[in-house]
């Protein structure tokens, strides 16, 4: 059983028969296994955000089917699906409905009419999971970007989803905020066994995933382990993506005549270089 499955999904903004530039997804197939951490890469306008919005029914596919744990997403079970598939968006300022942290985290749980004690427990759990329990009474507008995004994650967690999709949720954060979010996401994936789909254009973040998927013009064009993907540098560049800096260095060293293996890890690259330099002397 796949956690998330797209079967021949069609979708378009605008009318493709009228407008050649209208964005469209055609016959998209894509699966995510339970417990997996998948990074979705692609340049702006490649369709990666559309993917995120289709998965929990914010956008409706024109054809094909989307399955969440084998249940086909449809009009009738929309709320059930949304409880299972949580989505965190890009802008930390545009996701909170309340001024106080705990009120905002409660929002989703209130929407599905959970008993009051249960909502209290969910708030505790969710704020604990993102490391913000001591800030439950804080004013949202005074938090840092990273903290606001953690509140947004907690708001989604309060619904106890089994899949979490982060739609460029780190794009507007500074490095510290980005690290906070990535740490939380990794922990949710490892400890809470939540399946994670991370849409990003930071190549470095994709290195942490089990699998990377590259989108281009509404289609999935590459997928595999991050190290495999980043070894195919020419293809990546053709899809308007950049290599992670470490891959650039490895590549240039090799072009300069050194035999260093592809690696995305600083210490193993250092091992390689040191080995090369020492054996030469």
């Amino acid at each position: 059983m796949h956690a998330l499955e797209f079967r021949d999904v069609d979708f378009s903004y605008g009318d493709p028969s009228q407008d050649a530039n209208a964005f469209r997804i055609r016959k998209l197939n894509f699966t995510v296994e339970e417990g997996e951490f998948v990074a979705v890469l692609g340049h702006n306008g490649s369709g990666k955000s559309t993917l995120a919005r289709l998965a929990n029914g914010i956008l409706t596919a024109d054809g094909g089917e989307i399955r969440v744990f084998d249940t086909v997403l449809g009009e009738k079970n929309l709320f059930e699906i949304r409880k299972q598939v949580g989505v965190v968006f890009q802008n930390p300022d545009n996701q909170t409905v309340a001024s106080i942290v705990e009120d905002d985290v409660a929002f989703g749980a209130e929407n599905v009419a959970l008993p009051r004690e249960e909502i209290g427990r969910r708030i505790d759990f969710a704020l604990g999971a993102v490391g913000m329990r001591e800030l439950r009474g804080a004013t949202v507008s005074r938090l840092s970007g990273g903290q606001k995004q953690r509140v947004a994650i907690a708001g989604v967690l309060a619904l106890k989803p089994r899949i979490m999709i982060l739609d460029e949720s780190t794009a507007m954060l500074d490095p510290r905020g980005r690290k906070e979010i990535i740490d939380v996401v990794l922990r949710l994936n490892k400890e809470e066994k939540i399946t994670v789909v991370l849409v990003t254009h930071f190549m470095e973040e994709a290195l942490l995933a089990d699998r990377a998927v590259v989108m281009n013009r509404g289609d999935i064009v590459m997928q595999g382990a991050p190290s495999e993907i980043f070894a195919r540098s020419d293809e990546l560049l053709a899809y308007n993506l950049a290599l992670p800096r470490i891959a650039v260095i490895t590549k240039s060293l090799r072009e300069g005549g050194m035999s260093v293996k592809d690696t995305l890890d600083i210490s193993s690259l250092a091992d390689e270089i040191a080995g090369e330099l020492k054996c030469g002397s």
Partner: peptide, 12 residues
């Protein structure tokens, strides 16, 4: 965007 985020959290 807020509308999307609210919908994603089962509002409605």
């Amino acid at each position: 965007e807020l509308g999307d985020a609210m919908e994603a959290r089962c509002y409605g």
